[in-house]
Design a protein around this nucleic acid. Structure first.
Lengths: 158, 158
DNA sequence: TTCTTAATGAAACCATGTCTCAACAAAGAC
DNA sequence: GTCTTTGTTGAGACATGGTTTCATTAAGAA
């Protein structure tokens, strides 16, 4: 991930705030700096912790208030894997994909797109009498092949 | 849903308990009677409320302790739709499908299967170097077509 | 019927997340 | 730069969904 891409995304968030007549506060700046200085998925509590390392005054309330702005502006993805807390993902691309493969061995999360699956989903919705508005596909998987090849890049995979 | 089918599923749960050397208590009987007297999905709190109508002594702890037994025995499905609480579904069939269409208008939940989608999922997993273990697909939809036809059977759809 | 011990209910507890409200600070007007 | 308006903030109370503890109860074997 290049530095310009990070700056670009931050600029987009500022634009989003301006368009909504929301104020560009220091806390919001710290939070987006934090979000867009990682490529990893994170939880709200992790974000709070990281943001506080940059500015110890950032409060839990502000983090929880800013996350919906980030998801609304589509710069961050919200993901629910059935755990009691949610995961978030900095979204550098514009793609609206909500398909994730989660490795049960190394906890790696891979996003992917599939037009084929989307087409079938619409077909199924139609058949049932519904119009599909959005979709969310989660695959739980094992990185056995990557491990065998020695190309799994997560620390937890030896 | 026929009466025998309900009895059959209850019998299976008793068998499950016996096999595990778990006791067949009155509370567990009340809870499965409650679960398998509906076709609807429900939350843990709803189940508690319903069970208490049959036997007011059933406690929250027991409901929450029994639900994992029901999911483990595969007689109830656990579903997570990103809300802070989970939904459960009495599972009369043996099918392991985990695909749900949730209507955002009437909150109806429809389960469906798709071999086509599963095939594509495996293909994608392979391509990424993973072996897909399980999948979970959620479609958010609108029942506009059913409403237009006047065939949506939920009370909330007029 | 007795005995062992798993299961239970009540309530304390926990974790994630939301809300309230007085204090603060952006940003426009001057 | 200073003033004024009003959206935003931090601290902590609160809400919610769920889990754990522990004394008591009751399955089920003997």
């Amino acid at each position: 991930m290049e530095k310009e891409a990070r700056e670009e995304v931050k600029r987009k968030f500022i634009e989003f705030l301006e368009k909504k007549d929301f104020r560009i506060t220091n806390q919001r700046r710290v939070i987006i700096d934090t979000v867009f200085s990682t490529d990893e998925h994170f939880t709200a509590e992790q974000l709070l912790e990281w943001a506080r390392e940059k500015d110890s005054s950032v409060s839990r309330a502000t983090v929880y208030r800013t996350l919906p702005l980030l998801t609304e502006s589509n710069l961050v993805h919200e993901m629910d894997f059935g755990k009691p807390y949610k995961f978030y993902d900095p979204n550098y691309s514009e793609s609206p994909n909500h398909n994730h493969l989660i490795c049960e061995d190394c906890e790696k999360i891979v996003e992917f797109d599939s037009e084929k699956i989307e087409a079938i989903e619409n077909e199924i919705g139609d058949k049932l009498g519904f119009t599909v508005k959005s979709q969310n596909l989660q695959l739980t998987a094992s990185c056995d092949t990557l491990k065998r090849k020695g190309t799994c890049d997560k620390k937890s995979c030896s």
